[in-house]
Write a protein that binds this DNA or RNA. Structure first.
Lengths: 355, 355
DNA sequence: ATGAAAGCGCTAACAC
DNA sequence: GTGTTAGCGCTTTCAT
């Protein structure tokens, strides 16, 4: 009956709006259907559809009138209907644990830029580092029948794992290659990053090396780095000379506080490995405040290669992770039809001035 | 014909998958329709639908069998179809200019947390500070028939403006109250923030005040702050004693470089107002490197109240903006049915140690 | 080159 | 309390 009401004047509809704006069809946009456009152009629905999607064949004359009608009516295609009628959607789900750490916006940025160019829309989900929350998000995202799913990390609940496997879509796990993936995996080995950090400190001559981290039960990748770190120390006959783990998400304040505490407990450390750059910058700020000489009295090593770490008066020694690149590469795989595979992108150790 | 094929055994279908995983229905998830569930439960489609949405009435016995069937078949509802059949969708579009500056992830975070709790999914769009790109994104997002649109900023192309007005949905413009909104507006006055910064510096006794900013043609809100800043200086009979605008997006490196240059050109500045905290932290790092005494030789003032600014050895004097809160408040308005309105959230001037 | 018609999977009256 | 029946707006054979 909506149709009936609109047959006479398809331009009248929906909005009570006073039509204040100019230069654009009145009562426009939503509400105008392909049927309206077809009728206004004097062609059939399917023809209008073909023209609007530049798919199939039609005369240039038909083309012109359809386009004109669409523009005049302010037609906005309904992708919900389009998706339902055709096969797959142009929605891609992206699941990250947090948005508070710039690492994940970086990942999103990389993914979104590539996806956007390919005509996909990103639907995001934030788990707050909770695997059960992730499961709920996956279920919810799957109900939008996305073309694929990008998710940070390899660890999932059994149900989440089963769901995505049953979804019949491409699933890309990001930022971690230490473990088994479901379908595609794009990232790097956090374990290796931890090892690289340890080897660097050892090579530089440090021996009383401590660790300052944040909640490892939540941040599984930080835990893997720490694991690799300890392994490399052990290979050199060393062990962690002290550790301090703040039971909170990583932050500059947490890093600052944790370094303060570990230096009380273990004053003779000569170097500290931080769970990431946020924590490390906090440590760096503490040293500046306290007048603790870097790197002579204490060396600092981080992880991620954030801008703030690179631009500090003494650039932080750290490992640059290819976050944006991981996002980009992952997004590209959405349209791939190849077999499951693993893409490893290299991290880069930055020898700053803090070691 | 799909239906026909599945009548006999609804569990067989779609996926060629070898069914490697265990503890979950085989050939599951996508592909199983409500019809399948209804049939398996021995009830009608609409009854199954009611049960699954806990809407309408049904016996607890029916409820049990439907739920059992859904679980057994691994049914994942198809929201695309659901949305098309019902009225509005549970998708909300969020448009931000960038993800490279933590300010926008903060905004997203606030919005997404509230949206998620209300059963909405966030579909994001990144404009790269390009209004034409924004227009394209709006058009694209609108085609998903979202329940509403959250967009940073008040400035849009005429077409974009017309489109959202014609969309018949709630539209919330965020982070700026200096100008006319389309529907709802949630934010604060950047002009006032600039004025507050200027007044603070003046009250502290600074007179040779410079400005270090980033590309103002793109960042319209930074431009408004600068405008308010100059106005307040003028009211005190002062004017900007020098300015340096890096023709790039804001960053720590840009702030550092720009301060370096302005100090060459105008060595006798006694204070600098930065377009935001990223730029200001860059300036702060330069001063640390050069041994420029803060605030005696040079005072620094930023904008945003980022964690890095608050945790620095000398906490940066800045203005804390309620980014997360703006996101939260905006998200809450999506479901509102009130008239267009403006919500102003206060910013807070932080008197740090750099002024 | 174009149109008619049959759905896509679900929700929402409306009967029973 | 439950089933039947229309669509939602579009894409897609299949004729013509």
């Amino acid at each position: 009956m909506q149709d009936d009401a609109m047959h006479d004047d398809p331009l009248v509809g929906r909005r009570a709006s006073s039509g204040t704006h100019i230069g654009f069809p009145m009562g426009s946009g939503a509400g105008v259907t392909l049927t309206d456009v077809a009728r206004a152009a004097g062609v059939g629905e399917s023809t209008a559809s073909r023209v609007l999607r530049s798919h199939g064949s039609f005369s240039s004359k038909t083309r012109a009138s359809v386009l004109e009608a669409a523009a005049r009516l302010g037609y906005v295609p309904n992708r919900i209907a389009g998706t339902l009628a055709s096969t797959g959607s142009k929605l891609v789900g992206i699941i990250v644990p947090s948005l508070a750490n710039i690492v994940f916006p970086d990942l999103l940025r990389g993914a979104n830029s590539v996806l956007g160019k390919a005509g996909f829309q990103s639907v995001i989900g934030v788990t707050d580092y909770d695997l059960v929350g992730e499961e709920a998000l996956i279920s919810s995202l799957l109900s939008w029948r996305p073309a694929g799913l990008l998710v940070a990390g390899l660890e999932h609940t059994p149900r989440a794992d089963a769901m995505v496997r049953g979804g019949g879509i491409r699933i890309i796990e990001m930022l971690d290659t230490d473990g088994a993936g479901i379908d595609m995996v794009v990232g790097f080995s956090n374990r290796d990053a931890g090892r690289a950090a340890a080897r660097h400190l050892i090579a530089r001559g440090y021996r009383r090396i401590g660790y300052v981290g944040h909640d490892l039960a939540l941040d599984l990748r930080a835990a893997k780095r720490f694991e690799g770190f300890r392994a490399a120390l052990a290979e050199a006959g060393l062990q962690v000379a002290g550790q301090m783990i703040a039971p909170v998400p990583s932050s500059i304040a947490a890093g600052r506080g944790a370094l303060d505490r570990i230096l009380h407990e273990t004053p003779d450390l000569d170097a500290v490995y931080f769970s990431n750059d946020d924590m490390a910058i906090g440590g760096y700020f503490l040293c500046l405040s306290r007048g603790i000489g870097i790197p002579d009295r204490l060396a600092l090593f981080g992880h991620n290669g954030l801008e703030v770490a690179r631009c500090a008066p003494q650039p932080l020694s750290t490992i640059r992770t290819p976050r944006v690149e991981v996002g980009e590469a992952s997004a590209r795989l959405i349209s791939s039809d190849g077999p499951p595979s693993i893409v490893t992108l290299d991290f880069e150790l930055i020898e700053g001035a803090t070691t």
